[in-house]
């Protein structure tokens, strides 16, 4: 019997007002140490699902178990990296991270907090920028602070909502590599939303594909058959990469319009698991 998953989502549904639900019948599991990406077009409720996992939003129906317990509001166990960094602009970089650290360990002395913050800023390469205000930083550096703030509290799970979508391609690539490294080193459990197929293949162990909203479902789950550690500079040379990438793109372009969901053998509790190996 496999170990109990860290996250267990059963029959999640969200409805705004009285119309059709944004999404319904969403079932999935996330194991400890797993990196999961959720891909889907805008409007399928990806962010809502993430906010439900974060405890910031409530689903209209369904349950979420985290470490065997039903979710009850936000928690320091689940850190969120927001799409727009969400740093507090009146605090400098150091104080932004310290705010989180003090929330996690309220009894720590100033010395302990300062040391921990300095270490975390060092990890994301921002030691020099500790005294700067977020407004004085580039988009990439701000998002680094966001990452440092989230990782500093040692969460059991990291939730990321398109964390790199506002960045230029070069910065995005560097940060993707760093997140891949940091998460692999600490075996961090991650749930991440993205639009970017290459990003998903670089980072995720499994990729959940959502159909278009309204009434969106998880259509299938693609297992990333490229073994870790994956690096940005060579991941696309792996023999399985083209097949996986084409499969994801085909889904986004064609099949996301409800593909498979109507099929007789589609079971929302067990969406088909796709495992693509290298083309012969």
């Amino acid at each position: 019997m496999p170990p109990e998953p860290l996250v267990r989502v059963d029959g999640l549904m969200k409805r705004f007002g009285t119309g059709a639900p944004v999404f319904a019948d969403v079932y999935f599991r996330i194991a400890e140490g797993e990196f999961v990406c959720l891909i889907g077009h805008s409007g399928c409720g990806k962010t809502t699902i993430l906010n439900v996992l974060a405890g910031l939003d409530e689903a209209s129906d369904g349950t979420v178990l985290f470490a065997g317990r039903e979710l009850d509001g936000p928690s320091l166990d689940r850190a969120v990296i927001f799409q727009g960094h969400a740093l507090l602009p009146w605090l400098d970089v150091e104080a932004n991270v310290a705010f989180a650290v003090r929330s996690r360990w309220p009894r720590w002395s100033n010395e302990q907090v300062r040391a921990h913050v300095a270490e975390q800023l060092g990890v994301v390469g921002l030691g020099q920028a500790a005294k700067k205000k977020p407004s004085a930083l580039s988009g990439g550096m701000r998002q680094r602070v966001g990452i440092a703030r989230a990782l500093a509290i040692r969460p059991r799970m990291l939730l990321m909502d398109e964390p790199f979508s506002a960045l230029d391609a070069l910065t995005r690539g560097t940060l993707q590599d760093e997140v891949a490294r940091l998460c692999a080193e600490t075996r961090q459990t991650v749930f991440m939303i993205t639009h970017d197929v290459d990003e998903a293949l670089l980072l995720a162990d499994r990729i959940f594909l959502m159909t278009n909203g309204p009434d969106a479902r998880i259509a299938e789950i693609v297992v990333n058959t490229i073994p870790g550690p994956r690096r940005r500079h060579d991941v696309h040379h792996h023999p399985a990469y083209p097949a996986l990438r084409n499969h994801l793109l085909d889904f986004l372009i064609e099949r996301s319009r409800g593909f498979g969901v109507g099929a007789a053998d589609y079971d929302p509790k067990n969406p088909p698991e796709i495992r693509l190996e290298a083309a012969a």
């Binding site: 974060a54 936000p74 928690s75 927001f82 996690r104």
Partner: peptide, 28 residues
């Protein structure tokens, strides 16, 4: 900004700390 309140909520900020450390400086 809702984002800042959400940051504080995910950090399990108590209401008074939220008021003085997030809402007050933001609205100052």
């Amino acid at each position: 900004r809702r984002e800042w309140l959400n940051v504080a909520r995910t950090l399990e900020c108590r209401p008074l700390r939220m008021a003085f450390r997030v809402v007050l400086p933001a609205a100052a």
